[in-house]
Structures are given as structure tokens and as C-alpha cells.
Simulated assay, not measured.
Amino acid sequence: MDFHDVRFPARLSFGSMGGPERRTEIVALANGHEERNTPWAHSRRRYDAGVGLRSLDDIAELVAFYEARRGEMFGFRWKDWADLKSCVPSREVHFEDQVIGIGDGETTLFHLVKTYRSGGVEYHRPIAKPVAGSVRIGLHDTEQVQGTDYEIHLATGRVTFAEPPVDGIAVTAGFEFDVPVRFATSRIVTSVASFQAGEVPDVPVVEVRI
């Protein structure tokens, strides 16, 4: 996949607008009922990178980043300030934040996931872009040592254990993460006059599948 493992400047994404999008196909039946179906197993996030721009220097930094990514060609990391941890934003990451699997005595490869719960229903979101230095892994109630007990692949979110976790033991994780995105526009239109008047360019970005 065409992806540059660099993060969009975090200070420019701070204050940006965006969030998850889902696609639902709705068919209205003759009796007034509906049939609803979704072709997407996972939501897709969209953001506006233009909202966080506050100066002409910010615009110059945005244009440089856009040009280096060749516009829509190459993906990059995006910091979603509203959803960036395995726990709630106000808490510190802990190795027991998320259950990412159950040991079977054979499997050594697990994938980072974040579970969203509401009303007794769960959604498991794959996490493909953990932040370096933030990942903590545990087995049952014991934190493991990176480089000795396991390795983390930062480009995919995969966790590989040196030895398979024993049967029935919970594999847990805590982490910060970025969203893999690309620009969703083939051009950036800027104007010094309009920016000084308080108008910022519309710079959409959209999540990509990894």
C-alpha cells in the first residue's frame, strides 16, 4: 500500500472537526417497515485538516505536507484528539485497557483492537497504527516486557509473543494510536486575503484501510 509512516503535524490537527462515518443501505417496504444492511464491517473516519490553521505559516506547512504526500497518492498518520487512546482521553494508558485475545497455547500473533461498548453491544475496531513507545502488553494481570516477551509492529498493530500465551489466559493491551488517512481532495485552494479575513481552506482527509 502507498503509505508514508509520518504524522500530520499534531498542532495543525488540534481543533479539527471529524469523526466516524458508516454506510447503511435502507429499503422502505410497502408495509412501512424497513430493511437495513451495511456493506461495511468497520466505520470510516473523515476529518477537515483546514480548521486547525491559524496563520500563514500554518498554511505553508500544510502545503509542504500535501506536496510531499503527492496529494491523494500517499497515506499518512492522523492524530484524532477526541479518540487517541485505548482508554478515555483523560486517563493514562494501562496494560489492562483492552482484551485483544485469549491464549490457546499455540498462537503467538495477536492484533491490537479497541472495543466500544454501549447498551450491551460491542464493536471491535482494529488498530493498525499504534504510537511508538506507547504500547503496553499484559498477560492476565502481569505486564510483559517489550523486546523480551513480545514485539510490536508499529506499521500494522500486530503483537508477536516470544512464547504462545497459555490456554485460557487473557491477552491485554494499552496504547495510543493514530488513524491511517489520505487527503480526500485533488487540490488545496488558499487565499491570503480570505485567510486574513477569518476564512480557512477546506482540506478533507479520509481514513484508509490497512
Rank of each mutant, 00 (worst) to 15 (best):
D2P: 13
P9A: 05
A10K: 14
A10L: 08
R11T: 14
F14W: 12
F14G: 08
F14Y: 10
G15M: 03
M17W: 09
T24G: 01
I26G: 06
V27C: 13
L29Q: 12
A30C: 06
N31P: 02
G32Q: 02
G32L: 06
N37W: 13
T38Q: 14
W40K: 11
D48L: 03
D48R: 03
G50V: 00
L53H: 01
L53V: 00
L53I: 00
L53K: 01
R54P: 00
R54I: 12
D57M: 09
D58Y: 00
A60E: 11
V63S: 07
F65P: 01
Y66W: 12
R69A: 15
R69L: 06
M73A: 11
M73P: 03
M73I: 14
R77H: 15
A82H: 10
D83R: 13
L84H: 15
K85E: 04
S90F: 05
F95A: 10
D97L: 01
Q98T: 13
Q98N: 09
G101S: 11
I102N: 02
G103V: 06
D104Y: 04
T107V: 13
F110M: 09
V113I: 13
K114D: 06
K114T: 07
T115V: 12
Y116H: 12
R117V: 10
G119I: 06
V121T: 12
R125T: 08
R125D: 15
A128F: 05
A128I: 07
A132Y: 10
R136Y: 02
I137N: 10
I137G: 09
G138A: 07
G138M: 02
L139Q: 10
D141M: 11
D141K: 13
T142V: 15
Q144V: 10
Q144D: 09
V145R: 08
Y150E: 04
Y150R: 02
H153Y: 07
H153M: 10
A155T: 14
T156W: 02
T160H: 09
T160S: 12
F161M: 07
F161R: 03
A162F: 06
P165S: 06
V166A: 14
G168A: 11
I169F: 12
T172V: 04
A173W: 00
G174N: 03
G174T: 04
F175R: 04
D178K: 00
P180G: 06
R182W: 01
T185E: 05
S186A: 15
R187Y: 08
V189A: 04
T190A: 09
S191N: 11
F195D: 00
E199M: 03
P201K: 01
P201V: 01
V203L: 01
V205H: 02
V206H: 05
E207N: 07
E207T: 05
V208I: 15
V208N: 03
